[in-house]
Amino acid sequence: MNKLQREHVVCDLRGSCKQEKKLCRTLPQISGLTNRQIQVLKLIGRGLLNKEIAAELGISLLTVISHTKNIRDRKNLFRKSDLALYAQQLNLIGEDQTLHTRL
């Protein structure tokens, strides 16, 4: 019978992390999204428009639309409000970061 071997993972938070000695997975691993898609999703969750997201991230409007479409396809989320709720489920936005209201 094989013995379980400990795996050493290099982490900048080692020794100061609240989750010390627990299995740690990164948000891209959990969500299946790329880092950029996560950034876009976070800004959607904050209520930004696509053109505002593009300006914030320094990318084109078409790139934002492409990332949003890819997120929707991967997660079967169809409305922008569904994307915002998903961002909240992933703790990308807190309760204090309520959606913008537009006049």
Rank of each mutant, 00 (worst) to 15 (best):
E95Y: 02
N50W: 00
N91F: 04
N50K: 11
R72F: 07
L77R: 02
I30F: 07
A54N: 12
R14P: 01
L49H: 14
L61P: 00
S16A: 07
T63Q: 15
L99Q: 13
N91E: 08
Q97C: 10
G32Y: 06
E20K: 11
L90P: 04
S81W: 00
F78W: 11
N2W: 06
I93K: 02
L49D: 05
I53T: 04
H8Y: 15
R46G: 13
T26E: 07
R72C: 10
C11I: 08
D12Q: 10
Q29L: 06
L99G: 06
Q89G: 09
V9C: 08
R14A: 15
C24G: 02
A84M: 11
C11Y: 12
S66Q: 02
S31Y: 02
D12N: 14
H8P: 14
A84H: 02
L99R: 14
G47S: 05
L57Y: 06
N91R: 15
Q29N: 10
Q37I: 04
D82R: 03
V10E: 13
H100R: 14
L62E: 14
G94D: 03
L61V: 10
I38M: 01
E52T: 03
S60Y: 01
L83Y: 05
G58N: 05
V9G: 07
L77W: 00
K69N: 09
L27M: 14
N35Y: 06
L27H: 05
K22P: 00
I44N: 04
L48M: 12
K42P: 04
L43R: 12
P28C: 06
